[in-house]
Design a binder for these strands. Structure first.
Length: 336
DNA sequence: AAAGACGCCAACCGCCTCTAG
DNA sequence: CCTAGAGGCGGTTGGCGTCTT
């Protein structure tokens, strides 16, 4: 049995709002506020509407200082950057753009920006596929090394060390702050702090982020892992992630970039390239559940998602047939 | 000119989270 | 601690306008 409906569905009006309804709602809220009870509001003002519908109408249309349409280039950049960093958290994205509603941004993304980005993605894939292929040859020549990297390295904090102290630096500022990476708000703040600080040039800035775990381990992380758009040819991954491949930062960066760009539709995909590695904790047991008890709604995307298979239809050279299970996971290729 | 395709966007639906009792 | 209900959110739909054939 489902939950009880919030209102009598048979007795509420649906569809577009009339100017009279708008006036009633607007006048009442401006005068009395919402009274912290949307469900009761329509009855008070004699509207045959669901309370949720009133709330939506107010938030998306009637509220003062709402902007509609005409997204600027800067707003486009902010939306793209945040989407690639945190996925479809429209309310968080909207919070960074005064006057914009989550619904507006969602519609704008779905109808325009996504197409724009996918077009760019297809171009990039063609040039990068070649480099991925070359690197794969190197992996094959040193399989024991990559097997070690894939199974033994955890870049996502376990439950035991999820409270991180991060020193975040970029071209504009240095901040030092504690983040609880199992807390969505805290982690969101980390992302937003970086992105909003560079709102005017988010596509160009280099952001380095040193993460000191409680256990005195140091895991440098670049925002390239979070934001693939920053993964240009001149960006660097920290050398101690792949210590024996410190001469290959660009190639690794491209790997992550390819992996991420192919997952435009997933949330938290910015972490997928690294997060798709097994999360192995200190006692050696596989820890894919380290974040399951958190408030992250979509944290499972940190491990391989078979739903991504369809994203590979446009992979120019096809998925290598002889790729191993771990390599598949590492590259984010669908299971075969 | 007509019909079908396409794009846009307001609004709805249903799930999840939060919180008061 | 548990539960019910309201708020919040993201995915999806349907209607309308515009474009293309």
């Amino acid at each position: 049995m489902g939950r009880a409906p919030c209102c009598d569905k048979t007795n509420v009006k649906k569809g577009p709002w009339s100017p009279e309804e708008d006036t009633k709602l607007k006048t009442y809220i401006q005068k009395h506020g919402t009274g912290s009870n949307w469900i009761a509001l329509p009855q008070k003002i004699g509207l045959k509407r669901c309370g949720k519908s009133c709330r939506l109408r107010w938030l998306n249309y009637l509220r003062p200082n709402i902007k509609h349409g005409g997204f600027s280039e800067e707003e486009n950049n902010v939306i793209c950057t945040l989407y690639l960093s945190i996925g479809s958290r429209w309310s968080i994205i909207a919070a960074q753009l005064p006057g914009r509603t989550d619904n507006d941004i969602k519609n704008y993304w779905n109808t325009r920006l996504r197409k724009k980005l996918v077009g760019k993605q297809r171009k990039d894939q063609q040039s990068q596929a070649c480099r991925v292929s070359n690197l794969k040859q190197e992996i094959k020549s040193e399989p024991e090394y990559f097997a070690g990297v894939i199974t033994q390295t955890s870049y996502w904090p376990s439950e035991h060390n999820s409270n991180m102290h991060m020193q975040v630096t970029n071209n504009h500022y240095v901040s030092s702050q504690h983040y609880d990476l199992n807390n969505q708000t805290s982690f969101g703040n980390l992302l937003l702090n970086n992105n909003t600080a560079t709102a005017t040039d988010t596509f160009n800035s280099q952001v380095a982020c040193d993460v000191s775990l409680q256990q005195e381990q140091v895991y440098p992380i670049t925002m390239n892992m979070i934001n693939p758009i920053n993964s240009g040819s001149d960006t660097c991954l920290p050398s101690n992630i792949f210590p024996r491949f410190e001469n290959l930062p660009n190639e690794l960066s491209d790997l992550i970039c390819v992996n991420q760009l192919l997952q435009v539709d997933g949330s938290m995909q910015g972490f997928h390239g690294i997060g798709s590695l097994d999360m192995t904790n200190n006692n050696g047991s596989t820890n894919t559940t380290s974040t399951e008890s958190t408030s992250w709604g979509d944290i499972n995307s940190l491990v391989y998602s078979p739903n991504l298979a369809s994203d590979y239809e446009g992979y120019p050279q096809g998925i290598p047939q002889d790729i191993t299970f771990e390599e598949s996971r590492y590259f984010g290729f669908p299971m075969q």
